[in-house]
Amino acid sequence: MRKVVLIPMILAFVGAFFALTQQDQPLDPFEEAMKQREQYLKTFGILPGDLFASQGEELFHTKRGPAGKSLEECDFGLGPGQLEGAYPYLPRYFADDGKVEDLETRIVSCMQRIQGFKPQEINRDDVVALTTFVASKSSKAKMQVVPKHPAELAMYNLGKQLWYTRAGPRDMSCAVCHDDHAGKRVRLSPVMSPQQGLGSEWPAYRFEEDRMYTFENRIQFCYASVGIPAPAFYSEPQIALTTYILAEATKAGHSFQELPFFTR
């Protein structure tokens, strides 16, 4: 419980800390993030992402919900409670509920099936912390998303369709930036294609936002920033886009970053 109290305390320093370390000359975003990361380690001895992961670890092992069970029975694809190396295979098809699920959706379905929570009782912050914890068990692991089951292939195809859909008042699609202008910069931010390893850094702590971002948070942010209302958490378009992006990155042989990652 001590760690949970630490989080608001440490985050309270972040605003002032961030203001103090701002530079006149804009830095490369990657270098800037690495610099901020070093400052965090020097000042606090721990990274914010690791605090979320330990909060998630506590939640994972605590008996909760109407059924009074922990999530240790939850099978992420490698067997109940097997967390090491499970994340890189997600999204994947799960026979127990007949669905293709990403990590976040899998956590939510386990909270319902094993712990007996109703969907409206599930707290998003808990899911983010749990996602951060489970993903941290696959830090720097090689991506392994290879759709084979018909439901996985259907998800991949839906993701590909969405990837190319031009929509909204700014005529945007994922592809028109992330494929057609991969390697360029929007302001200071590099634009990456799945083939260049897009998606390898989530879940990550974004110091500019002072928040943990999961893959689904990042997809929502993408849509919102191009004027298209964001797709709901745990919905099929979220899982479909994640499948498409990570399957393409897997084909190109990419690995995840240090997870949870630290970024701007």
Partner: peptide, 28 residues
């Protein structure tokens, strides 16, 4: 599936204009 992501998201994606649709179909 798209409708399952919320009415506003579905509204934007399922109501492409004819020219947006051409660009989507031909991948730009």
């Amino acid at each position: 599936a798209v409708q399952g992501s919320g009415a506003k998201f579905a509204d934007a994606l399922l109501n492409m204009s004819a020219d947006q649709l051409q660009c989507s179909l031909h991948q730009n």
